[in-house]
Design a protein around this nucleic acid. Sequence first.
DNA 1: TTGATATTAAAACAATTGTTTGATACAAAC
DNA 2: GTTTGTATCAAACAATTGTTTTAATATCAA
Lengths: 229, 229
Amino acid sequence: MTASETDLESDTRKRLIDASTEMFVECGFGAAKVRDIAARANANIAAVNYYFGSKEGLYAAVIQHHAAQAMENISQRRRHESTSAAQADLRNYVSNFLKRLLVDTPQFTMGKIIAREMIEPTAAFELIVEKFVRPQFVGLNSLIRSLVGEEIPAETVRRCSLSVVGQCLYYQCARRVVGLIDPEFGYQARDIERLAGHIVDFSLGGIGRIARQRRHDRRRTTSKRKNRN
Amino acid sequence: MTASETDLESDTRKRLIDASTEMFVECGFGAAKVRDIAARANANIAAVNYYFGSKEGLYAAVIQHHAAQAMENISQRRRHESTSAAQADLRNYVSNFLKRLLVDTPQFTMGKIIAREMIEPTAAFELIVEKFVRPQFVGLNSLIRSLVGEEIPAETVRRCSLSVVGQCLYYQCARRVVGLIDPEFGYQARDIERLAGHIVDFSLGGIGRIARQRRHDRRRTTSKRKNRN
DNA sequence: TTGATATTAAAACAATTGTTTGATACAAAC
DNA sequence: GTTTGTATCAAACAATTGTTTTAATATCAA
C-alpha cells in the first residue's frame, strides 16, 4: 500500500501535534514544557526542534492544524426574515459557542486554544482575533441586530453581543470557581444544552428590555432635538 | 518623631509589596519574575527571601495586605422591602464589581488579584474563593432572590448570578480582545458607569424573563403532577 | 550492497530563575 | 568600645528550560 500525501508526515510529527495541543490547552503556552510534551508524545526532546524549529513553531503548527476544521464550525450568517428565526439562530449560536468552549473533543479544540489566547496572549494573538474572534463577533452582532431592529445604535448592539459572549466564556475561564461555588453543575452534553437554554433566555430578556428602553429613549429625544448624536 | 508600629516595617518591605502587587496583577504569579519585582522596588534580589522567605511568601503577604481593605468594599446584604430597592442594590453591586475589576487604583487591587486567581489558580486559590468569591456570590444570590420571589428554584437563581458575574468578568479577562474588537470602549470612570448601566439593564431583562418563564412552567407542572423535583 | 537522506537518541549548552551565602555597613545595647 | 542584631548587597548556586550538537539508526533508491 503506497503512502498517501498525508500519511507521509511522520508519525512522530503527528504525535507531537496531538500531545502539545493537549498541553497548550491545559497549561497555556508558557507553562507547557517542551520536555513534558515530548514525553507525552513518546518522542525525543530534540524532535520538537527537528520538526518545528522551535516551541513557537510547534504552537503555530498546532493552530494551523486546528484552524481548518474550526472554520467549518463557524455558523454562517443568514438573513433573518422573522424574529423567531433569529431567536432560533441565537440558540444555535450560543449552543455551538459553549460546545467549543466546554466539550473536550478534538473537534472543538480550537475554541479552547482561542480562549487561552484571550487571557494569555502570545505572538499569535492578533491573527487569531482577526481570523476567528472578529468574524464570530460580527456574526453575533448581525444576529442581535435582527432581533432589535435597525433603529438601535450599533454600540448598544455591540454591548449586547459582549454580554452574550461574556456569559458563555465565564464557564470556561472560571471553570474551577464554578466547580467550587456551584458543585452540582456538570459538563455533560445534557448540562451544556441546559446551560445554553438559560443563557439564551436570559439574553433574549436582556436584549428585549434594552431594545424597548432605547426605542423609548430615542422617541423622547427625537421629539425634543432634531437628532441624537 | 518616634516611629509608630506601622512605620517600623522597613521601607524596603513596603516597596516590595507595592512593586510585586503591580507585577502579580499584570503578569500573574508564574510570569512575574523575582528579579523584575526587586528592580521595580529598587531593592536587592535577596530582599525578597530575606523579608518573605520565598516568592510564594511574598505573594501570600500581598494577598494579606490587600485583603483587609477589600473586605470593607464588599457590599453587605440587606433585606429588600421593594423590588425597586433590590434593583438599586443590583446597580450598586454591578458598579462596585466593575470598579474592582477595571479601575486601576490601589483601593481596588484585590479584585484584580482575585480575577487572576480565577484563571491561573495558585496555592491561595481555595482560600480566596472561600474568603472573597463565595460571600460575594451568596450576596448576589440573595439580591436576585428578592427580585424573582421565593418560588423560583435556587439553581435558576444561581444561573442568573453567574450570568451577571460573567458579563462583568469578561471585560477584565478579555480586556485585550475588547480593545481590538470594540476600540471605542474606554476604561474611564464614566465609561465604567455606563457599562454598569448596560449590564444592569440587560440583566434585569434577563432575570425578569426567566422569572416569568419559570413561574409559568411551575404553574403548568404543578397542575399536572403533585410537585416538581 | 552501497550511499544518501531522513529520523531518532543521548548528551551537552546557554539562558533564565528562585534561592542561598558570606561580606559589609549601621545602629542600638551593654 | 565592643557586641549584637538588622539590613543590604554582590556573587554564586542549583534547578529548570528551550535549543543545539553529534553520533547512531533507519529508510530506501541506485
